[in-house]
């Protein structure tokens, strides 16, 4: 397990005795791996990511991320755990009255970094996502693709070991979606483990990787496992 970034065994999320969001899901993710979670709407993709990000609690099973037991994580340690994991949302979740620079800098402010360090890192990561010249613009002046790039920049600025993305291309046109996927690949090449929830089969074909398929909360198949 030492080499595993994610280790999930018998994961279940039950709402009642007969209703569940996830049932007996088990899989591992190696360090530096790139994988998709896919399935139809309601398959349990988002619930799985939320559990990995400590936004929801599992009813049963073991979940370890980077050797940390996420299922037994005390509430007062969640904020520390979230500093080790990045999350990209479908709706970007940017703060509209902060500039791009301030949005991206926020995770570092939370970590109480010095302004010099913050500036250095923000400029670096904005340059990586191709928005170095838009630092002082506001989110609403950017296109959807550019806003998603800002959200990705914010999620990786803390140098997380695991990056989770929930339908990151769901609101984007196909061209922009491809650019975003290329960016995820680039981030993965730098050593970050990436797990993306998507139902876009075309993109998965274009950027092939391991694909974990869920159906009605259960693991249907796991293709391309390393």
């Amino acid at each position: 397990m030492a080499q595993k970034m994610v280790h999930i065994r018998g994961l279940g999320v039950r709402y009642s005795a007969s209703r569940y969001a996830l049932k007996n899901v088990s899989f591992d993710l190696d360090r530096g791996e790139f994988a998709y979670i896919t399935g139809a709407n309601g398959a349990g993709k988002t619930t799985l990511l939320k559990i990995l990000f400590a936004m929801e609690r599992a009813s049963e099973g073991n979940i370890f991320v980077n050797n940390r037991d996420v299922s037994g994580l005390p509430r007062n340690q969640i904020y520390q755990y979230r500093r080790e994991v990045g999350f990209v949302f479908q709706d970007f979740k940017l703060l509209p009255d902060l500039t791009i620079y301030d949005n991206v800098a926020l995770p570092l402010e939370v970590r109480k970094m010095t302004p010099g360090e913050v500036d250095h890192r923000v400029r670096g990561v904005l340059s990586l996502v191709g928005l170095g010249d838009r630092a002082h613009d506001f989110p609403q002046t950017l296109s959807g693709g550019e806003q998603q790039r800002v959200a990705i920049a914010r999620s990786i600025i803390g140098r997380p070991s695991l990056l989770l993305a929930d339908e990151p291309t769901g609101n984007l046109d196909s061209g922009t979606a491809r650019d975003i996927m290329s960016l995820f690949m680039e981030i993965n090449d730098m050593g970050t483990t990436v797990l993306i929830a998507t139902h876009d089969e075309g993109l998965m074909d274009e950027f092939p990787a391991r694909t974990i398929r869920l159906q009605s909360g259960q693991l249907l198949n796991d293709r391309g496992q390393a």
Binding site: F53, M55, Y79, Q80, Y81, R82, R83, F87, K93, L94, L95, L106, P107, V110, R111, R154, G158
Partner: peptide
């Protein structure tokens, strides 16, 4: 509210 939620999601302490 949204700001508070987002800031929590990026690892902000309660006091922050």
């Amino acid at each position: 509210k949204e700001e508070i939620e987002i800031v929590q999601l990026i690892g902000a302490e309660r006091s922050f």
